[in-house]
């Protein structure tokens, strides 16, 4: 199972990865040959390991070929209609999912609802390892797997569903720029607070992240993830920031979004776009999630037009009139 997972992840960020079934077939091949290796009475462990590595590399190569064929296949099947059984995968919503993943997942769900595309949400403890890019959420449509909002938007456009058709070139450029602003500032700040603030990491992130796993795997995976995120923060220049500076960045980002939104219904007049889905996903998750302290939520709550924007989208697309019930639905996020 671990190797199927590894092989799957090694496909990189290809927008369209092989379907689960294709990967599964390969894993069957791997699993059936495993006992053969184990049964040969080879006392030399290193020898077994080297054969195992060769096998693993072969599987990776064949997976890459499958991926290539599938992406070629995708071009011809792009026009197929949206199937009924489309599924969105995310980590366990009750006890595992973290603020940043929850925000991204909510953004994708909102986007699909705005497009009027039905999707079934499926919670898996290993969703992160099933995803072709290693990031959640991802959707499984027909025989294709697509992860993250950007590629999903492209994928639905190929199928003829788009929210940004009515925009002119300048507006589309601005929309893309603001989406990058949210990813660059809000998402990075969420990751920073989750994994680089020691109190939050110890009390919320590590226990929640590793909740489905038993000892010692839970500690290994949680620290591995934390180490990964911290390296990323150093690479993007956030490593030296203090918590206060990060809160200040969040305020600035919300200030910019609030200025841009003004008194409009949506960011681009009356028509919702993928930017609205993304902003809603992040702002709504931040204000409804209980972390070790309320500082992050309070910073966001200073901007009243963003709050009413969230409430409006929540009522329109999730059909829960009062926010308290809605928040109880989503705030199963990282609460203590």
């Amino acid at each position: 199972m671990m190797h199927r997972v590894e092989g799957n992840r090694s496909l990189g960020k290809a927008a369209v990865a092989p379907s689960n079934t294709a990967v599964y077939e390969k894993s069957v091949v791997l699993n059936s040959t495993l006992p053969a290796i184990q049964s040969c009475k080879c006392s030399d462990v290193a020898h077994v390991m080297s054969r195992y590595m060769v096998l693993y590399i072969n599987v990776r190569v064949s997976l890459a070929n499958v991926c290539l064929r599938k992406s070629l296949h995708m071009l011809s099947t792009a026009a197929e209609p949206w199937p009924e059984n489309a599924t969105l995968y995310q980590p366990l919503s009750e006890e595992q999912i973290l603020l940043s993943d929850n925000a991204s997942s909510l953004a994708v769900q909102t986007y699909l609802r705005m497009c009027n595309l039905p999707v079934r949400v499926s919670c898996r403890a290993n969703a992160e390892f099933m995803s072709p890019s290693g990031k959640v959420p991802f959707i499984h449509v027909g025989n294709q797997v697509v992860s993250e909002l950007g590629p999903i938007v492209q994928f639905t456009r190929a199928k003829g569903h788009s929210l940004s058709e009515g925009l002119d070139d300048v507006q589309r450029a601005e929309m893309k720029a603001y989406m990058e602003l949210v990813n660059n500032m809000l998402l990075t700040a969420e990751l920073y607070i989750q994994w680089c603030d020691d109190t939050t990491a110890t009390e919320v992130s590590r226990p929640r992240y590793s909740s489905p796993y038993s000892w010692p795997l839970n500690h290994i995976l949680a620290y591995q993830k934390q180490w990964e995120v911290r390296r990323k923060m150093n690479a993007v220049g956030w490593g030296g920031k203090s918590l206060e500076q990060v809160y200040e960045d969040v305020s600035q980002c919300c200030q910019a979004l609030s200025q841009r939104l003004g008194t409009q219904l949506y960011f681009f007049n009356k028509q919702p776009t993928e930017l609205d889905a993304l902003v809603y996903g992040h702002i709504f998750t931040i204000i409804t999630t209980q972390l070790t302290n309320n500082e992050l939520a309070e910073r966001v709550q200073n901007f009243s037009n963003l709050l009413s924007f969230c409430k409006r989208i929540d009522q329109t697309y999730f059909g829960k009139p009062d926010e308290s019930s809605a928040s109880s639905r989503h705030s199963k996020g990282p609460s203590l």
Partner: peptide, 16 residues
């Protein structure tokens, strides 16, 4: 203020 917000957004776009 709106142009300031646009500046932030496009700077993010460039960096990403």
């Amino acid at each position: 203020a709106k142009e300031g917000a646009d500046t932030m957004a496009f700077v993010s776009l460039l960096e990403e």
